[in-house]
Amino acid sequence: MLPNAYPARFIGLSRTVVVWLAILTVVALAVALPWALWLSPPDYQQKDTIRIMYVHVPSAWIGLMAYVLMAACALVSLIWKKPLADYLARAIAPIGAVFTLLCLVTGSLWGRPMWGTWWEWDARMTSMLVLLFLYLGYMALSNAFDDFTRGTRAAALLCVVGVINIPVIKFSVEWWNTLHQTTTVFKKQGPSMAPEQLTALLLMALAFHLLFALLVLVRTETEATNARLRSLGALGTD
């Protein structure tokens, strides 16, 4: 075990930050939820179902952002063999998987009343499902070996290769004919959404990102602590 395997300073700092993130998440949710469910107007076409967007789109953003972050950590872990990068990547995977799953489920609940289908194999939905499987593959592979470092490195390789899927998800709606509509917020001409609706979306996105950061810090401490326990012989072998 390397001497810096337990990132004591990082963990010490993160314990303080987690408390603040918890407070901020609660405040952000308290402001965002009334906007999402009540203060923002319905859509002229999709009526109140637009409110599903305020949980669907932030989930998708987290699912994508988390994967890029995880892949960056995996790359650092492969090149510089920093234990902290391993812990971060392993901490992010289940969180990213959960938000990707939420994106798929809420999308389904939105697609049924509006498009008339729970699920279709269009490019956007299929590539998002592939993202979920990449997360699950990373989690399975990283825990498949008795040797912690080996497992994490093998999973890191899969994770880095899987980055190819991210631009496919992002641009699927531009490259191919899809059932899913094209991008609303990140457009050259600016978001094509009313300001009150955009407010609801961005507030919810803020709350989701704060919660994501909180969960990552909590799970990173768990990963680091478990690695220390393993090195002390208290958890399996290393």
């Binding site: 319905p42 509509q181 959404m193």
Partner: peptide, 18 residues
Amino acid sequence: DNVLARHDENYMPPEVAD
């Protein structure tokens, strides 16, 4: 045997559309 609706990426309140 199946008809799906497709919508565009623009959202606005009904009053604005009117």
